[in-house]
């Protein structure tokens, strides 16, 4: 270890193995000053820009905040209205019943539809009676004559 320390000491006696470009240390303070001035200018420019746009930025932020509040309020109202006591079926029926929506054709369609339902019903009954009379072997001719 001691021998090596001596060896290290001898090594150090030599010149600096590193070098720099010619005139580096002479020009460094000037380069540094320029960089500091440039950084200061940039900093001042940013501050000036910020001061200039400050009212516009504030106005913009106010608009954004207002829009956010409005959207939130609308969403809140819509969410609450969907939970109301009137269900969708009732709402639809209410709309359908609105008299202004009815036309003459609408009434005709409804009447025809009802008549059709009644006719279907009477056909079913007639068949039931005919089958009953056949099964019971009743003289339905006599019944017909009596009825008409």
């Amino acid at each position: 270890m001691n021998d090596f320390n001596k060896k290290l000491g001898k090594l150090k006696g030599n010149t600096n193995p590193f070098s720099v470009p010619k005139g580096y240390f002479e020009s460094f303070p000037t380069e540094l000053q320029e960089k500091i001035i440039y950084e200061n200018r940039e900093y001042i420019w940013i501050i000036k820009l910020f001061r200039f746009v400050k009212p516009q930025v504030a106005l913009g932020l106010m608009i954004v905040a207002f829009a956010l509040i409005a959207i939130t309020t609308v969403n809140f109202i819509q969410t609450n209205s969907s939970n109301s006591t009137i269900d969708n079926d009732l709402y639809t029926r209410t709309i359908e019943v609105d008299a202004s929506e009815f036309t003459e054709q609408h009434f005709i369609d409804v009447l025809l539809d009802d008549k059709k339902k009644v006719n279907d019903h009477s056909t079913e009954d007639s068949e039931f009676y005919i089958h009953y009379l056949i099964d019971e072997d009743i003289d339905y001719q006599t019944l017909i004559e009596a009825l008409y």
């Binding site: 090594l11 030599n14 193995p17 590193f18 070098s19 720099v20 470009p21």
Partner: peptide, 13 residues
Amino acid sequence: VYFNGNEIQCKLQ
């Protein structure tokens, strides 16, 4: 290019 050390100096570095 900015290192001009000899072999031993290079080895030490």
